[in-house]
């Protein structure tokens, strides 16, 4: 039983990270109907930005408090990823809006390759380690909870609350939902559609940057290839939850995290990715729109 709870906690932690990244996929899909395949690499870029900030901070300011260091890492990572995501939307995706559907998709794959190769060339192909930032662990009977797991879950919960509030209760969130549902009508009501789309890319990038920073803190390494496997898993999470649905992205992320850690614990760690994708395929057969996805047909 303790072992099971332990695995649940591990899954929850990992799932939080996937969920934060999945939101970026789902929001962009919702608003412009495009899978931003470069989003996984935004997550990876966030991790590297945090890593570089960490190295700078620790070499210039000896004994900087860990919490402060993490905060600075996160903020800088958010700025870097936002700038990058904003730029690719502006120069690579926007000119293709309204062209055939595959064009932006292919461009996004191109952007993904550009970013991961750029990091590979400038940062090297090997895993970059950092010393453990947060070491404390707590014991509850036989269950061990590390402080970093708590940080991840709490930060995720706080961000999701803020995010939920913005999307559902503010004029910006209303403009985003309106743009998603009927872009032309949104413009007729005075919504600056281009600006709203840009802000959506910035919001998605910021969440991915936080996820990237926490992933770095959790595993202690960053690799140029992180945009791929964890990135694809976050995408899977978005599809599993129902692409376009924000609660779906979070739910999908948590499910993928749980499946992964429980499967690794009870079956075989080598097959955890197979298990994840098999369950995705299974769900999609019975519910093609994902768990919380909406059916395409609508009375309008």
């Amino acid at each position: 039983m303790e072992y099971f709870i332990q695995q649940l906690l591990n899954g929850l932690t990992l799932g939080s990270i996937y969920g934060l990244v999945a939101i970026g996929y789902t929001m962009v899909y919702g608003i412009i109907g495009m899978i931003n395949f470069a989003h996984g690499d935004i997550f990876m870029l966030g991790g590297f930005a945090a890593l570089i900030v960490f190295l700078i901070l620790t070499s210039f300011i000896a004994g900087i408090p860990v919490a402060l260091a993490l905060l600075i890492m996160m903020v800088v990572a958010m700025l870097v990823t936002s700038l990058w995501n904003w730029t690719i939307e502006r120069v690579a995706y926007r000119p293709l809006r309204g062209s055939f559907r595959l064009a932006p998709l292919i461009t996004a794959i191109g952007m993904s390759i550009v970013l991961s190769n750029f990091i590979q060339v400038t940062q090297g192909p090997r895993n970059k380690p950092i010393p453990p930032l947060v070491n404390d662990v707590f014991h509850f009977g036989d269950v061990t909870v590390s402080l970093k797991q708590m940080v991840i879950v709490v930060v995720t919960a706080v961000l999701l609350t803020i995010f939920w509030y913005i999307v559902n209760k503010t004029p910006l969130g209303r403009a985003q939902r309106a743009t998603e549902q009927d872009r032309k009508m949104a413009a007729l009501l005075g919504v600056d559609v281009d600006r709203t789309i840009s802000i959506t890319f910035i919001m998605g990038a910021s969440l991915a940057a936080v996820a990237g920073t926490m992933y770095l803190m959790y595993y202690g390494v960053a690799s140029f290839a992180d945009g791929f496997i964890p990135g694809v898993k976050a995408f899977t999470a978005a599809v599993l939850g129902g692409i376009g649905s924000l609660p779906g992205a979070v739910l999908g992320g948590l499910l993928i995290g749980l499946i992964e850690s429980l499967w690794s614990a009870y079956f075989s760690i080598a097959y955890k990715d197979v298990a994840t994708f098999a369950i995705l395929a299974f769900v999609l057969i019975f519910k093609p729109t994902g768990i919380l996805g909406r059916p395409e047909v609508e009375k309008v």
């Binding site: 209303r174 309106a178 549902q181 009927d182 949104a186 009501l189 919504v191 009375k299 309008v300």
Partner: peptide
């Protein structure tokens, strides 16, 4: 061109 997934109230807010 009503926003289908917004409430009546939110449509008016728009």
């Amino acid at each position: 061109r009503i926003f289908p997934r917004m409430t009546v109230y939110e449509n008016l807010q728009m």
